[in-house]
Nucleic acid binder design. Structure first.
Ligand SMILES: [Zn+2]
Ligand SMILES: [Zn+2]
Ligand SMILES: [Zn+2]
Ligand SMILES: [Zn+2]
Lengths: 136, 136
DNA sequence: ATGCACCCTGTAGCAACTACAGGGTCAAGA
DNA sequence: TCTTGACCCTGTAGTTGCTACAGGGTGCAT
């Protein structure tokens, strides 16, 4: 399989595939006589794993650890669990933080009654955190 | 006021202040004979506006527009409202997306029963989106 | 005079890509 | 046979919003 096919098969940008190879996340594939990259099913599976993990918000370094783990089938899987749990906690933190932000923004947006910038409550609120109802 | 004082007064890293000046978000301040930056209250207010807007998640370009608006007090403020509303909508989208992610991660993390990597349900789930209950 | 805190410029690094520029390869159609 | 177009290659630079130096200068106290 050439890089364009792998790209279509996994929904990954070609440049991204080459990027993953450069940073050592994907192994270097064989080359054809024309120096084209040539991939097999294990490459496809690995890239699918990477893309899916990225879609779930894992960082490249986390994915690197997860791949190391899955390359070593006899190892204890508790590290995978730890990485995923920590990531879940981060997502929960982020949701909490964005929820505060949303509430504050809702309040700010709701204050504008139209008119000129000098009297705009949105601009006023942005200039002074003391108008805010919570930390953020 | 020297840059260190402005930094403490606004809770902004010194390097960040110089960065904002470089990209034209803050005006160039006067310099002392020793070539030190010298700030006044309007600078402090502007930087406070910038930091608070950043804390609320606005991008630098959005802040640039908001500052342009507040520099021109007679202008109609509807653009400020539009920028803030659009940002609010983006935050809401992000929350929705992260909530889906959280649910999926919760499901994935809950599947691990310990054991070796070869049989780990977490690693299995990361490798195949078909194990997922929703899009993400 | 010497130490220390502070300031200066300019450049490079971070994450995770994305977008070229400038070239090579290959199969199909006129 | 020639050419067109789709594909591939490498290498580098851009994106966002900072942050971290390196290598120097300034100002005040001891
Ligand atoms: Zn308004
Ligand atoms: Zn606030
Ligand atoms: Zn497991
Ligand atoms: Zn999935």
């Amino acid at each position: 399989m050439k890089i364009g096919e792998l790209s279509r098969a996994t929904g990954t940008n070609i440049e991204t595939i080459r990027y993953y190879e450069r940073i050592g996340l994907l192994p270097k594939p064989h080359r054809t006589v024309a120096n084209y990259r040539s991939y097999g099913d294990p490459h496809r599976a690995r890239l699918t794993f990477v893309r899916h993990s990225r879609d779930l918000g894992f960082t490249i370094e986390e994915i690197r650890s997860l791949l190391d783990l899955s390359d070593d089938p006899g190892r204890d899987c508790s590290e995978a669990d730890r990485i995923a749990s920590r990531h879940l906690a981060q997502v929960e933190d982020k949701i909490a933080q964005l929820t505060l932000l949303r509430d504050e923004l809702t309040r700010i947006v709701g204050r504008c009654r139209g008119g000129v910038a000098a009297e705009c409550r949105v601009i006023e609120a942005l200039g002074d955190h003391r108008h805010c109802a919570s930390a953020h």
